[in-house]
Design a protein around this nucleic acid. Structure first.
Lengths: 140, 140
DNA sequence: GCACACCCTGTAGCCGCTACAGGGTCAAGT
DNA sequence: ACTTGACCCTGTAGCGGCTACAGGGTGTGC
């Protein structure tokens, strides 16, 4: 199949496929005489693997590591587990940060009693000062 | 004061200050004969305002809007409120997405019973397929 | 007169794409 | 045989918000 079909099946953009190839994430496919890239179902499986990893928020460098694990099927999968743990920790950290952020934004939003001028606005006034930060409100 | 002192007081990098100036977020300061930028406390207040907004996750374009509100102090602050609401919605959306992500990652993590080979690893096998998505687990 | 901290401009890099420009190829229709 | 239009190619630039140089100039203290 050609690149358009491949991209469609994987639910991504043609440009993205070429980007992955350039980045060394996907193997370079054979070319037709015309120069067109020609893919088979193994290429598709690889691309889908990458897209699934991406949808889980993994970085391309991390996906490369997983691809390497994949190409040594008899190796110990401890590395896979460790990589997943990194993802989970990262997401948890981001969630904690967002939680704090939301709290700050809502506190700020409540500073304004409607229909004031900009200079009287409690929000605008507060933005002149650093946000009061409690020590990690999400973990108590 | 010179740029190094300004950056230090605002808790950011010198390069960041110059970047903000180039981006039109901060006014261009006077120059000394040497060509060095010379700042006063008003510049510092502006920079701190920007940094506080950034720490709340606002985009530079949004901060520009707030700066404009700031320079028309007698205007109606409804726009400020609306902008804050946009921030809050954005953070809530991101938190919902992260929550879903975390759930998916943990489900995936549980697919591997320790000390297998890569090809037997439940995680690696699952990554060949799309993640099962429940309809927004964070809102019920 | 020298060292060293600081400042300047301009450019390139990070990430994961996205969006062109400027061209070639192919298949169907007339 | 010719045209249309969908697809493909390479290469480059842009997004956001910085960060990190290179290659130079300036200021200050000893």
């Amino acid at each position: 199949m050609r690149i358009g079909e491949l991209a469609k099946q994987a639910g991504c953009d043609v440009e993205t496929v070429r980007y992955y190839e350039r980045d060394g994430l996907l193997a370079k496919p054979e070319r037709e005489i015309s120069g067109y890239r020609n893919y088979n179902t193994l290429h598709l499986a690889d691309l889908q693997f990458v897209r699934h990893c991406r949808s889980l928020g993994m970085k391309l460098a991390e996906i490369k590591v997983l691809m390497n694990f994949r190409s040594s099927p008899d190796g110990d999968c401890a590395g896979v587990n460790a990589l997943l743990d990194v993802q989970i920790v990262r997401v948890e950290e981001q969630m904690a940060a967002m939680s704090l952020l939301k709290e700050q934004l809502i506190a700020l939003r409540n500073k304004c009693e409607h229909r004031r001028t900009n200079k009287e606005c409690g929000i605008m006034q507060s933005l002149n000062y650093a946000v009061q930060v409690r020590k990690c409100p999400c973990h108590r």
